[in-house]
Structure formats: C-alpha cells, structure tokens
C-alpha cells in the first residue's frame, strides 16, 4: 500500500473515530462508527487481506451495526448534551489515555522489522481459499467452538430480550 493513500485513510479513520465519541445523537455516533469500519475495511484490502476486508464491511459494518440501529430506534433515544459525570473521572481518563497512546506509539514505532518482511507474498495470500484452509485445519477446534458460541449468543439474546408474558406488567417485578 503506497504511503499517500494510507495517510489519507488513516486521517479519515481517526476523524470518524473521534466522531463516534463526540457526537451528541447516538445515531450520528453509529453512522460515524460505520464509516470508521468501512475505512478500516479498505485498509484491510490495501493490506492484501481481501476476504477479511469484505467480511469486515458486510458483516461488521453491515449486519452488526444494523442491530445497533434497531436497538437505538427501539429505545427511541434522542439527542442529549454530553453527559456530566464526574470531572475527576474525565480528567483521569484523558490523562490515562494520553499515557497509553504515548506508550503504545513509542513501543510500536521501535518495532524491529519482521522476519518475513522482504519475502514475496504467495499469490493466493488473503484469498478465501487460503483463509478457509487455515480455519479448517489449524483452527478447526476454535472454529467449531465459535459456532457453539454463536448459538449460545442467539439463545441468550432471545431469553434476555423476550417480553414476559401476560400476568406481570411491562417493566414490573420479575
């Protein structure tokens, strides 16, 4: 990936990510987040991880965020001023984040060059076949456990969000 497109996409993703935490209306935050995810997906494709990049856009930015959108609509959240909260917590939070970012930047900018960096990439690097080969051989157990996790997640979500049937008032005692 050439330097100039990278810088452009990096600036774009940072701006959108800042939008996520600065917008007042939750829907605007969500749209900002979707744009961040799309830009990260483009970065993935720029890194030759084509399959994962498209998965990121379709599954993450598409499906998961629509779920968020539905919940925001369901709760009928309106635009609100940025909440007060404890000033001390904000101060400590900002300070801690600044320290974390400084530490991480110092760390990652002094990384030794990776061993295989100069090696030419395989022709099918990042293709769906190569990824599936890894998933169904080295990571087979993890892959199967993931399917169980999704099943449990679906059952848990339905059990949580289910409205209690007649008898108890909505929002009343369990």
């Amino acid at each position: 990936m050439p330097l100039l497109p990278f810088l452009f996409l990096a600036a774009l993703s940072i701006i959108f990510a800042a939008g996520v935490i600065l917008q007042r209306h939750p829907v605007h935050s969500l749209l900002s987040l979707v744009l961040t995810l799309v830009v990260i997906g483009i970065l993935f494709i720029g890194l030759d991880a084509t399959t994962v990049g498209f998965l990121q856009m379709i599954v993450y930015a598409g499906a998961i965020k629509v779920l968020f959108l539905f919940v925001i609509w369901l709760l009928n959240l309106q635009s609100q001023p940025i909440e007060g909260g404890h000033l001390a917590l904000k101060f400590v939070g900002a300070l801690g984040s600044a320290a974390l970012i400084a530490e991480l930047l110092v760390f990652v900018l002094h990384l030794p060059p990776p061993v295989g960096h100069s090696k030419p990439l395989a022709l099918d690097y990042g293709s769906i076949g190569k990824l599936a080969q890894g998933l169904f051989t080295d990571y087979l157990v993890a892959f199967e456990v993931t399917s169980i996790l999704l099943l449990v997640g679906v059952v848990g979500a339905v059990a949580l969000a289910r409205r209690t049937t007649a008898g108890s008032a909505p929002g009343g005692a369990p």
Binding site: S13, A17, V20, S29, E83, G85, S97, I101, L104
Partner: peptide, 19 residues
C-alpha cells in the same frame, strides 16, 4: 494504537451506555 485509545476515551468519558 490511536484508534484503540479513542475507544478507551469513549468508554471513560461518555456515560451513554450505547456509546
């Protein structure tokens, strides 16, 4: 790292549970 720290800031500064 920068994106991660923006996320950390969001968790610490915002009180809206969805955000």
């Amino acid at each position: 790292a920068v994106l991660f720290c923006i996320g950390v800031l969001g968790v610490l500064l915002r009180r809206n549970i969805i955000i």
